[in-house]
Design a protein around this nucleic acid. Structure first.
Length: 205
DNA sequence: CGACCGATCGTCT
DNA sequence: GACGATCGGTCGA
């Protein structure tokens, strides 16, 4: 049920409802062509971060710092930041410029360039953890903080549609991971995962 | 399995 | 000077 790749254009990200974009990103393909090699994977887990009213967002309360500046960019902007001093987390910005909505890509099902992913992560063939979890997938794809501020319409990093669609009953919605400090927003159903996919990061639903 | 914990450092207060 | 939008290892049941 899949066809040829079509680049997602700006209108895909330029929408008011970041939850809808996060849901629609499931099944799309993230492609990185870095250092002359191509790696790609199907997106199987996302989380939405809903801007100034979301306690789990870096932009909560209108906070705007050097780190989070790219959160406020044009739709399709790439926002990568470092968590716990070592993990690079990849986000795509949605909604109009100035509105800090974003979708965190949490897991991929590898497609092309698996051998390069294994090399970058120093893992062995068959290790399913290569693109499971936001920190891991960044290493596997070769994506780095230096790519923050770019956009997903470039030759280096982009997101495409091959026509695959998940049915409603193939998608599970849960609360987000690692946002316990977000008080009443910690339990919001802002995480979207493909049911039964082995690359999805956390165990529970 | 689930719960816990240490690593490690950029960013914000 | 404290704290993570994490990960992977260990320990105990």
């Amino acid at each position: 049920m899949t066809g040829k790749l079509k680049l997602l254009d700006k209108s895909f990200y330029d929408r008011k409802n970041v939850l809808q974009v996060a849901r629609d990103l499931l099944g799309k393909i993230l492609i990185a062509q870095l250092d002359g090699v191509r790696s790609s994977g199907r997106i199987v887990e996302t989380e939405a971060y809903a801007g100034v009213g979301d306690r789990a967002s870096h932009a909560f309360g209108g906070r705007r710092t050097a780190r989070s500046e790219h959160l406020y960019g044009e739709p399709g902007t790439i926002y990568i930041y470092i968590s716990y001093g070592l993990h690079h987390l990849f986000n795509v910005i949605t909604n109009k410029k100035g509105i800090p909505h974003g979708v965190l890509i949490r897991a991929l099902e590898p497609m092309e360039g698996v051998e390069h992913m294994l090399e970058r992560t120093s893992k062995l063939p068959g290790d399913i953890s290569i693109t499971k979890g936001p920190g891991n997938l960044s290493v596997a794809m070769g994506m780095n903080k230096i790519h923050s501020g770019g956009n997903v319409f470039s030759k280096e990093i982009f997101i495409a549609d091959d026509g695959l669609r998940y049915k409603k009953n193939e998608i599970i919605v849960t609360k987000r991971i690692g946002v316990d400090g977000a008080r009443e927003d910690a339990d919001l159903p802002y995480r979207f995962i493909v049911k039964g996919n082995p690359y999805v990061s956390a165990k529970k639903s």
